[in-house]
Design a protein around this nucleic acid. Structure first.
Lengths: 354, 354
DNA sequence: GCAGATCGGTAAAACGATTTACCGATGCCG
DNA sequence: CGGCATCGGTAAATCGTTTTACCGATCTGC
């Protein structure tokens, strides 16, 4: 029942919520007990009766700890940063969705940042990276993502993880099997009978781009095919469209495009040049996106576990916060999978090169 | 066990960054001066010489304030929450991108949350909404977003803003001119000569869905056309595909689809029924997305200022934090704009209804 | 020479939780 | 009855800033 002798202060302050000390006062114990009880301190010895009373008061007052105060005391905020180059790129937003889910499940929140802005090392950098606003940072380097920026961040000792990337050394990373992706894509074209297979490559970031090129080369070598033309495909539909113009007409009957957005552009570009897909040119892209089946023709892709990549990145970063060494993982479960749709077909009878 | 080998107070602690008191000590002033100087306190009178010295020390120590401590003291964290139903929906991620940009420009960070999870009023709700983790919350209600959840959040007195929605009363909102969108879309079809114009509507949320229906009705009325069939289109490609099955064959030669993803699905669905787009059926959607020009046929849409919506939402929420009354805005600049591509054409000679 | 102003700061109390060290009663054992 | 565990907690020091109130000198005017 309500305390008869309550001369001072309202039980629950008019403005603002109940705080720890309110619960303590109301339950007639010290704040320490409330904190230790609510946090499940093993070393706390407490009478069952007291425990119930404290819990009841906390519930009645709808006590919720002030996360900011906790964070200050514990020097741990329960927030992970996620720096993305382009939020509206469906590949990135898929990773983001996975990360959000995993973080949330682990009791963490996700703070969104712009990777480019971060790299400029200005106010955003100061506040986010050096201001104790986050416990760790996941960074998805975009096309222009420099090593210098990464070093800059790493030097602050903020736990850092490169997502969808591959590193060695002190900065950890969680990536995808990029080589397998282009390998599968290229092999698919080879199996269809293509002998002139181009690669529209990423350009940047270097590590990922190199792996994709390797996969393409390996598949060509295994099939005993010559290396087809290689042009820069980039990351956007515009890049892909431009890339098609750079591809010498007739130099290839199939193209492996290292990025799905570029592939979308490449299809438009091909059409603009009077090439029919897949009749004159087969196109296969890396990464599946929800609208790929609705393109015309539906786009053949290698599906990569993007959502899983997001999840695993968070898990890895969390382990790193726990003291583990920076991870160098490749998410290979589920495996990259070829999804055959209608943008690939056997090469035309009259081969491209005549 | 205390460390006997550790002499007192290193100038800059080995672990962790320089703090305010370090700067103060090093510069030979009190912490108050440093804080007030760095925060630009007008009332602070200080000798030029001292000012320079403090600034120099702060720079030398690379002092960055601990945002958590600031937040605690000021009861203001500098973080806005953004709760989204589906991160990987390109419409939402476009809004998100705008919000991120504006927040960042205003010196705020954006915390991402899952709207559905939030609505479940569990741990996430407690920590985010009642834990002082954010200064205000933007909520994009998804298909299942209930009023109860909104009321729940509003009752906590956390500044709340509904994004891409329309409200009256105590909960503010920033929305789009949904009626204009479907009006323009419908008028376009009418001008092409269509007389049987269907509406694949949203279903939920109610307010937005109703406005879209109104726009369609108004355009039909103005053109002196009868009301065509209306079926639930939903928000996903799958929904749109299903919706096409629900549309009686021949009952319409044109369809206004209230959501671009549903429109993508509708095109596939139409094809599955042997309908050619636009020869047999014209389709126009609300919202432009980057891949719309690359669909086949390229999708005619009404472009809405999604990114601007994100920006304006942040600006509105910030004003609300500043004490303004909850806004009820409609972002109408730039205006909804019809982007004619190839999914719309005059109706077939032999009218659908024949 | 003395009452104010003005200058150039300082002291100290918040903000709300966590955590370490310790403490006064009981109970138990010999 | 003395010693010492064990029980059931408590006190108080942080965490790093911000901000209000105030203070001792030095001028200034008369």
């Amino acid at each position: 029942m309500p305390d008869p002798c309550q001369p001072v202060g309202p039980a629950r302050p008019a403005r603002g919520r109940a705080k720890l000390s309110d619960v303590a006062r109301e339950a007639g114990v010290s704040p320490a007990v409330v904190s230790r009880l609510l946090r499940g301190d093993e070393k706390l010895r407490i009478r069952e009766e007291t425990r119930q009373r404290v819990l009841a008061v906390a519930a009645e007052l709808r006590y919720t700890p002030n996360e900011v105060a906790r964070a200050l005391r514990r020097s741990e905020v329960g927030i992970l940063g996620m720096a993305v180059h382009d939020t509206s790129n469906p590949v990135y937003s898929e990773i983001l969705a996975g990360a959000q889910a995993e973080a949330s499940a682990a009791g963490y929140a996700l703070l969104l940042a712009d990777a480019d802005e971060l790299a400029r090392t200005g106010r955003t950098f100061e506040r986010l990276v050096r201001g104790n606003r986050i416990d760790g940072l996941m960074l998805q380097r975009g096309p222009g993502g420099s090593d210098a920026a990464v070093a800059q961040i790493a030097s602050t000792r903020l736990p850092l993880l490169l997502v969808n990337d591959r590193t060695r050394g002190e900065v950890g990373s969680v990536g995808l099997d990029d080589e397998a992706a282009t390998y599968l894509a290229t092999r698919h074209l080879a199996e269809l009978g293509h002998t002139a297979i181009a690669h529209l490559h990423l350009g940047t970031p270097k590590a990922r781009s190199a792996a994709r090129t390797r996969g393409w080369r390996r598949a060509l070598a295994e099939a005993g095919l010559p290396e087809g033309p290689q042009v820069r495909g980039g990351h956007t539909t515009g890049d892909g469209e431009r890339a098609m113009r750079g591809l010498e007409p007739g130099s290839a009957t199939g193209a492996v495009v290292s990025n799905v957005l570029a592939a979308v552009g490449a299809m438009s570009g091909a059409r603009a040049q009077g090439l029919r897909v897949p009749d004159d040119l087969s196109i296969v892209a890396v990464h599946d996106v929800f609208f790929a089946p609705h393109l015309t023709p539906p786009l053949t892709v290698v599906r990569m576990p993007l959502r899983e990549l997001g999840r695993r990145s968070v898990a890895a970063l969390l382990r790193q916060l726990g003291g583990d060494r920076p991870p160098h993982e490749v998410v290979s479960e589920p495996e990259p999978e070829l999804v055959v749709r209608a943008s690939t077909a056997p090469p035309p009878r009259r081969p491209g090169r005549a």
